[in-house]
Write a protein that binds this DNA or RNA. Sequence first.
DNA 1: ATAATAGTGTCTCTCAGACAGTATGTG
DNA 2: CACATACTGTCTGAGAGACACTATTAT
Lengths: 282, 282
Amino acid sequence: MNDTAEGRNKASGGVPRSPRSVPVGEAEYLAAYDPSVYPPVAVTADIVVLTVRNGRLAVLLVERAGHPFQGCWALPGGFVEEHEDVDAAASRELREETGLRLVVAGQAGTKGGRGHGGQAGHLEQLRTYGAPDRDPRLHVISVAYVAMVADVPAPAAGSDAAVARYWLVEDLALPAFGQRHGAALAFDHATILADAVERVRAKLEYSTLATAFVDEPFTLGELRRVYEAVWGESVHEANFRRKVLSTSGFVEPTGSTAPTEGRPAQLYRRSDATVLHPPLLR
Amino acid sequence: MNDTAEGRNKASGGVPRSPRSVPVGEAEYLAAYDPSVYPPVAVTADIVVLTVRNGRLAVLLVERAGHPFQGCWALPGGFVEEHEDVDAAASRELREETGLRLVVAGQAGTKGGRGHGGQAGHLEQLRTYGAPDRDPRLHVISVAYVAMVADVPAPAAGSDAAVARYWLVEDLALPAFGQRHGAALAFDHATILADAVERVRAKLEYSTLATAFVDEPFTLGELRRVYEAVWGESVHEANFRRKVLSTSGFVEPTGSTAPTEGRPAQLYRRSDATVLHPPLLR
DNA sequence: ATAATAGTGTCTCTCAGACAGTATGTG
DNA sequence: CACATACTGTCTGAGAGACACTATTAT
């Protein structure tokens, strides 16, 4: 943030307008500072929790008990509390809804959650949505996050009994994807969800994030089905295997195998790479 | 946004707590609604204006006249006004600082600014920074944007006489890049700048955004120097040319030429593609 | 046996990387 | 002329895409 605006005396902010020719000390300035006159806006952290269920992409939604959009389904989330880090608010909301503990990844200088052998799951910021009319009550700015988790961190773990369940993304009305039929989402959550899905589709190409959708250990078949569910198209099996195994740091074998419907499959765990060069193109 | 929190009666929000067994109508609800009790936070839109000057990446900074961080250099930006779209606030700040009119690109359903033959420049959201201690006065949440512009949309166009100038990115202290020496930035703006530079470096690989840094018409040499400035490494000329010209929709020839220090160069303008498949790898 | 999935080998074609060489301007 | 930049041609090796084939389980 900054307020060069204030420095140029054009903001309506609550800063004592000391003439620039008579500077005051910083301590003095902060003591005299009145925060109550900044524009009243509320900030929420909303999370798009994505998972793969039965080969399909699914998203966690909660049913709204109150107005507005009563009875509609919406992304889980809530207000950022006073003096609470926005990223921390996202972690808190995710934990309350799913029981999962993930920290936000992706900012310079912070090394995000998942590393070698870490817990399944990934949490990152998506985008901030700040249209003034997106909430009929007041100007609510939503900082949206995407969480990618393995199946069945069900809302069961949530402490309070809000109605929450996973929906198949294909069963929702998402105009941005040309999906005109299906359940309508509250607020601008259809836009947010569409952006999240696009983000994840792109990220699977050039990162190892697909592994965030499966529990360890996993088979290459399971990993491939993640790609197919997210991209919505089939992936050539032999070439996928060659590509994944030839990318050092993507996965590493555990040595044991798991039974399948056919020949038993080698099991793998996540390794330490996060980016894929060259990418695994769609 | 949403407030399932409120729906579950666990938020401290300013919603009249009507018992869930006695629902009220939505109009009634909105009339009784008191927005004043939401957590007090301020929201700013800050912009990382990047350009290429003399073959180097440069960023527009303003000198802070007031406390805190008086005398330090900071990213241009300012408070989001009441009922103002956050993206619109970013456009407004950019216009005030540089005179450029750009709209924010990148959200599903909105087709961002630049198209065929459009104005040079690109504006997109970067990330939101919401640590509670990033401003010593109060909890200020910054929605950061990246603008990529051609050289010399100088602060001259700015209406008020704030001290603003371009800095070479390499002359700033950016711990995230291992740059320990150079001018220190106010607040957490060094982190924001580092994230912006990383974003732009990545985007040049898989998008046509390099053309946002040059005015039309431009030569392939100018376009190549954009890549070299942003990536900080030399790009093989013949292969760059072959790649750019073979990607349909990247650039199109104007037919005329421009004098250079050697053989005159063919001139090009932007075309309609926005993404590069396959990418132009670093 | 069949069905189903896991896994290997190999051919081909595209393309990035490298480099040599030509074209066309200026001093 | 030398020099600088623009532009072209071509060789080579890596790798994606496609496909045939083998392996190992269950029924």
